[in-house]
Write a protein that binds this DNA or RNA. Sequence first.
DNA 1: CTGATCTAGGCGAACGTTCGCCCGAACGTT
DNA 2: AACGTTCGGGCGAACGTTCGCCTAGATCAG
Lengths: 344, 344
Amino acid sequence: MPSRVTIKDVATRAQVSYQTVSKVVNGQAQVSNETRERIWQAIHDLGYRPHITARNLRVRASHMLGYSWRPVPPDQFNPILDKLLQSMVEAAEKSGYHLLPFPCPPDHAQIQVYRELIFSGRVDGFVLSSTNLGDQRIAYLLDTGFPFVAFGRANPEWDFPYVDVDGAAGLRAATEHLLSLGHQRIALIGWPEDSLTGKFRVRGYLEAMQAASRSVEPSWIARGEHSAQFGETAARQWLDVPTAQRPTAIIALSDLMAIGAMNAIQERGLEVGKDIAVVGFDDVPMAQYLRPPLTSLRQPIWEIGQQIVAMLIKLVRGEPLEEPRVLLPPRLIARASSGAGVPG
Amino acid sequence: MPSRVTIKDVATRAQVSYQTVSKVVNGQAQVSNETRERIWQAIHDLGYRPHITARNLRVRASHMLGYSWRPVPPDQFNPILDKLLQSMVEAAEKSGYHLLPFPCPPDHAQIQVYRELIFSGRVDGFVLSSTNLGDQRIAYLLDTGFPFVAFGRANPEWDFPYVDVDGAAGLRAATEHLLSLGHQRIALIGWPEDSLTGKFRVRGYLEAMQAASRSVEPSWIARGEHSAQFGETAARQWLDVPTAQRPTAIIALSDLMAIGAMNAIQERGLEVGKDIAVVGFDDVPMAQYLRPPLTSLRQPIWEIGQQIVAMLIKLVRGEPLEEPRVLLPPRLIARASSGAGVPG
DNA sequence: CTGATCTAGGCGAACGTTCGCCCGAACGTT
DNA sequence: AACGTTCGGGCGAACGTTCGCCTAGATCAG
């Protein structure tokens, strides 16, 4: 490793003090054009690049944004990580920031880890994901006043900046889609009551049903864990109902559960998209390759990443947020599983 | 933001010079037990945490490892990113390092971006992924002597540290698996000739066939782009062959292509796993939920991440690598699509 | 011609560490 | 008693920047 070329090397070559070089590099005004050019020339000749660590020390900022995500169990998939990460990394880089991914700590150590990252000056702000009601991290960060933006909502009485997918709008769209195809009895596979995300989505479903003056049987709503297995179980229970009263369409709050439902339906020799419609949520990349291809709701992941990071950087810089709560609607991708789109 | 507590604050409280505090924090010997305890007490009382940026500046290291990955097109999936990232981040953190993900630059700007990261002192080393023959980054980094470890191989004449999946071993296992089930005519869906990874895998297939004294028809090997579409096309071509001579099993070099093949087979009214066996590569999380569940080769992603990072950190620290070329075999996960495992 | 204003650029200091060297006291040895 | 060794801890310097202040000369108005 040849010892690095510093601002002082540039200075001697350009015959100025090194502080003047700093001014030029940072685009400050107090330099004549010819000096400026001479300095740029020297910078170019020597291949000088400012040393980030030194700069960060001086300006008391790390220019790093912390991000951790909950790893999914090996049999499941994280449909959004790739794109979300790319989006956030790109957005951060645009403003001279970088993303610091760190392992999602076990629940009891959460605060400890966040505190450590703050006080060691490793990050200037956090992106929180997988938020839920009573999220300790939010409470802690609100308390200390450290900048953060959440991907997801939490307790309504907490006032904090977030970006979230408008699950209610998504489910309204899905429900209306099915209603418009003539379905009357639409069932829903959801998560346990304590899931906030689940609550919003169910609400959208109920709203759409009500708006269409359709009543909803309590038995049409199944709640359970996020797994293909549960999707299967839930669907079977409806398949046991006599044809005349049984739901003709199923909306699952995730593609994983939708896949379980599809498998249960096909097991009975029924045809998905014809006998019973199925709609998922997430639009996992695989959705289009399923037989039949799965109708699903696609989250605007790229957009979400961009907004979260843009907001966080504003906060870090102490600028005010004009719109601290952002909801972005997912997009319905209609395919054959709901009886729409090209068949096959 | 209350101004941070520094090593000097600790020093005054513990009645020592701040350099002595530094010694204690870094576990150096020259301090008596009682002083040490007094200092730890002060550290604890004040909640002191060393300032990483300052430390990094002083020791001339960023303790950051750069990593970029090629984003997959929206209709495909990255089956390994989640786990690989978790693994690498965790391994890095264990040794006091962090991962710096950066956007994968367009080809013509690659070197430029790497150079920038090096000379601005942002990273101490790189993890390279998606390597291929003639990879410019490898050439450049070898040339400058900057530490890196590749995930994947490249030109055999280049001497550099890498970790890779032993694709040949994987395909031998898959082929032997099918042979043991009685298949004789085994076809293969692969990538274009210029894919190095593809070449290794095909080699494993050929070796296994040869070891079993089975000859391989040239027409059994299809080469094309990595897509479900191509998997479908390739499979159809074999389905057109009269039953007596047509392949009874298909190995695809990726699950994505395997899925295409499965769809083509089912389209003809044939049953996957019974009429024709299918084996994929990657074991994407979805594989088990397909109908029938897909037999596939699972890459030891966690292990790979751990090894890559461990090797890279050694390099960064200037320690020698006892084993600079690591090949890890994938594991065959037998499911119904190859006629093995539990049916359904 | 004088004094005020502006401009280009220099200079010292600081950001929070770690490193190497130094010194004084205590101890043991001859 | 004189000397060498060891140990605990202090001190100056440096890592590569940016920031704010200062100044010498140029410019300008009256």
